[in-house]
C-alpha cells in the first residue's frame, strides 16, 4: 500500500435529533425508494421485510396521561471499531472503507450465509428471502440504475447511500476538486427528513455540523458500551430516551443535566406535574 494516502481521512456519520424526529417514516420510504429496496404484498412480517432504515417505537412506559412515545430511526450504524459484521463475513462481501468509514456491502459477492446478521446487534442487516421484485406490475420502471437490485439469497443493508458519495465525487472531480464541501454528499434519508432531524457529514472534519453536534451532552449512541463505535449518533433532551439507548444495570445510568441549546429549561420536557 502506498504511504501517505488519506487513510482514515474522512469518517462519515450522522446525528439524529430524536426531539425533532416526528416518527413520520419518510426516511424509511426515502431509503427504500433511493436504494431499490424490494416491496412485498405483506410487509407486516417485520422479521423478514427489508427496511435498511427502520423506525423503532419506544415508550416511557408511564401510565396515562403521562405516556410518551418516541422513535429511534435506525440505519446501519457503520460501526467504526472492528464492525462486527465485517470481521465475520466469509467472502469479504462487506468491508469497512477506512477512507470514508462506510461499511459497504457487495451483493454479488455475498453467499448468503447470514453470519453477519447474527453478529450485528442492531438488526441492520436484511436477507433477501424472496426474489426481489413484484413481477409484471410495472413497478420496476421506477428503479434507479445507480443501485443494483438484489437477487434472492444475499444480505443487504444501509450503505450510507454510497452511490451518492460516488456521484458527489464524480462531480467534484469534474470541477477539478479533490475534496467535497459539507452538504455535497448527504444521504437520501437526511435529505428527505421533513423535520431536518438528521444531520450528515464528516465526523473527522471539525467544521462539519455533525462533529459539533456529537459533543453535546444530549448526544449518545446505541449500545455504546459494547464497543462497536457507531458512527450514527442520537440526540435527545429527554432522559428516558437516552436511557433506552443502551442497557444499564440498576442505578448505573446518570441523568444528564437538563440544559439545552439556548440554556433554557423550556426545551426539555418538564414533568407534567411541575408544569
Amino acid at each position: 500500500m502506498k504511504k501517505g494516502n488519506d487513510h482514515g481521512k474522512h469518517k462519515y456519520g450522522m446525528v439524529i435529533d430524536i426531539d425533532k424526529c416526528t416518527g413520520c417514516g419518510t426516511c424509511m420510504v426515502a431509503c427504500a425508494a433511493e436504494n431499490n429496496v424490494s416491496v412485498r404484498a405483506d410487509q407486516s412480517d417485520k422479521e423478514r421485510t427489508i427496511t435498511w432504515m427502520r423506525l423503532y417505537k419506544i415508550s416511557n412506559g408511564k401510565e396515562f396521561p403521562h405516556t410518551e412515545v418516541s422513535y429511534f430511526p435506525r440505519p446501519c450504524m457503520h460501526c467504526d471499531h472492528h464492525p462486527p459484521c465485517v470481521s465475520v463475513c466469509v467472502a469479504t462481501a462487506t468491508k469497512l472503507d477506512f477512507n470514508t468509514g462506510i461499511v459497504s456491502q457487495i451483493y454479488t459477492r455475498c453467499i448468503g450465509c447470514r453470519y453477519c446478521q447474527a453478529a450485528c446487534p442492531y438488526g441492520a442487516r436484511y436477507f433477501n428471502w424472496w426474489d426481489a421484485f413484484p413481477q409484471d406490475k410495472g413497478m420496476d420502471r421506477y428503479l434507479t440504475p445507480e443501485v443494483s437490485p438484489r437477487m434472492r439469497g444475499v444480505v443487504e443493508k444501509c450503505t450510507f447511500c454510497h452511490h451518492r458519495l460516488m456521484r458527489a465525487k464524480t462531480l467534484a472531480y469534474a470541477e477539478d476538486r479533490r475534496e467535497l464541501e459539507e452538504g455535497e454528499y448527504v444521504t437520501a434519508c437526511t435529505e428527505a427528513c421533513p423535520a431536518q432531524a438528521i444531520t450528515f457529514g464528516d465526523l473527522n472534519n471539525p467544521e462539519h455540523e455533525v462533529s459539533k453536534l456529537i459533543k453535546h451532552p444530549f448526544t449518545f449512541r446505541l449500545l455504546e458500551r459494547i464497543g462497536t463505535e457507531p458512527k450514527v449518533y442520537y440526540h435527545s433532551s429527554r432522559d428516558w430516551v437516552r436511557k433506552l439507548g443502551d442497557n444499564f444495570l440498576p442505578g448505573e445510568y446518570t441523568p444528564v443535566v437538563n440544559k439545552t441549546w439556548a440554556e433554557e429549561e423550556w426545551s426539555t420536557k418538564p414533568g407534567r406535574d411541575e408544569f
Binding site: 470481521s87 467472502a91 455475498c110 453467499i111 450465509c113 447470514r114 434472492r152
Partner: peptide, 23 residues
C-alpha cells in the same frame, strides 16, 4: 442448502476473509 447462494459457496475459498472464523 442453508446458504442463500449455494452456487457461490466457493467464494468462501476464493474470496476468503482470514478474519472470519467461519472461513
Amino acid at each position: 442448502i442453508d446458504i442463500g447462494q449455494p452456487i457461490r459457496g466457493w467464494f468462501i475459498f476464493w474470496h476468503a476473509n482470514i478474519h472470519s472464523m467461519l472461513v
